[in-house]
Nucleic acid binder design. Sequence first.
RNA 1: GUCGCAAUAGCUCAGCUGGAUAGAGCAACGGUCUUCUAAACCGUAGGUCGAGGGUUCGAACCUCUCUUGCGACACCA
Length: 563
Amino acid sequence: MDYKQQVTNALVKALDGQLTADEISSKLERPKTSDKGDLAFPTFTLAKTLHKAPQQIAQDIAEKLDQTGFEKVAVVGPYLNFFFDKAAYSEETLNAVLAAGASYGQNNDGNQGNVPIDMSSPNIAKPMSMGHLRSTVIGNSIAEILKKNGYHPIKDNHLGDWGTQFGKLITAYKLWGNEEDVKKDPINKLVEYYVRFHKEDVDKPELDDEAREWFRKLENGDQEAHDLWQWFREVSLQEFNDIYKVLGVEFDTYNGEAFYNDKLAEVVQLLKDDHLLVESQGAEVVDLEKYDLNPALILKSDGASLYITRDIATALYRDRTYHPVKNLYVVGSEQMYYFKQLKAVLEEMKVPSAKDLHHIPFGLITVDGKKLSTRSGRIILLADVLKDSIDLAEKEIAEKNPTLKDKEAVAKQVGVGAIVFGDLKNERMNSIDFVLADQLKFEGETGPYVQYARARAQSILRKADGVDVQAAGNEITDPEAWDTIKALADFPAVVKMACAEYEPSVVAKYAIRVAKNFNKYYAHTKVLTEDAELPARLALVTAVSTVIKESLRLLGVQAPDEM
RNA sequence: GUCGCAAUAGCUCAGCUGGAUAGAGCAACGGUCUUCUAAACCGUAGGUCGAGGGUUCGAACCUCUCUUGCGACACCA
């Protein structure tokens, strides 16, 4: 039973058609605290038409209102506060969770439509930094949220595996590198060469000529260049995969930039056919004046392609391969303008999925307020942060739960969970000035806090083994349980909102809310007491465990049964 | 310079799209482990919601102006 609907119906009757159901429904709000009721109707809007004080209107409505089905309806000033029937509501909510299990909250809004997600996208031969973490975990979470809403996400790791930097890398490797070193520590060695190249080319501009030549060879399919490129790509990918494994993120495709090499000519041809390409200052551009945007540069004056050329090819490929209902790009906010241009060009080309192309931007990670950069050495290695966090989790376990089994596995779940949850907890767009100590927090509103609440729930359930928890008769009247029950009932709406806004933080905040309410509940109420409501309380604990685990799963965070 | 994003407690952030006394966490201070794991719970203190106008019954939220910070502005990605 939809209580909002029930409140609306009661009000429609009492108001005798003065407001439509929709008008009433949109005015209903949730009071800040449960002592003011569960849904409230403010009467201000009626004051004008009725020429009466809102307080009086609230009184009048209350008198006419059919209050059956509610615990009570209270008039507080200009508000009508509705209190739900706790026994009925808790029974309904708990039974719904128990019956559905992990699929509680699942809907089919997406109708299984394909949604390619451009995400993670690290650059070959460069280490993954905290910036890549954001794109990876936000993209991964959005994919899970989409699935929960009936979409079919396709996670595409759009690797930065092509470009002039490979000319530089090959040049540097041929000059200073050797196979053995690279095999031992691939990315660090490759970065070392790359950095050295940039140091030395200041005095030796001939290095740049050589690099250009190597890239030209690479583009023309030169065997040696291609073999080196492929090798660099492979060893880099192996290291990336180690991190993805730790994060628990998998991809459906790894179609990097190189994948589109043979698809660029068609893009240019299509643009020409549509007469969209115009010459400007020696370069080929698409004019975007009607979108109030600067022209998009498609071909450089030397005829070479650019990033956007590749991205058009990518969009075209995805359009033809998947017929997407949405097209998502989880890329930093600094590229907002760029994505407006990309979308505009695709719309000019009448690519069907262009109108559903969404850039999902996220805030920048800085150190001391400054942007990260591989070349300058201002970088935070993701692998290091994850390791620090896992180490700290190990220490916490040694201190707090030394007899725990599978310590290592749990430390990993908790340590990684802290980092991932920490990243997803706040609104995407917030920029983050990186401070390691801020990341390594396990207390308060953190991943471990949520994990801990569920571990405690599991602990109770283990001790209650043998008590029959049935999907019936789960009426809980304990007011201490009320906020938890309401939180559980909100999950399906949370799943929808997170999807509509592409905001994992909606789920993360929700998980905190459930955990917090549950912590309060069991701190106050002893669950394992032999009385008539014991099965109902265990049903509540089971439901909490299920919903927290599922919320964390949507965030890509694991939920250990013990910690 | 133009455009975009932001500004809420000492710090990090919420604030359900315009409603009730602006809420959490951290840090500080005080309390709670012979009872389901103290990664927890309870309490105290902490605010001119960057500034100023406008819209209306009502604004942290909408609008305008300004200030400050960050970012983007065609041959990088």
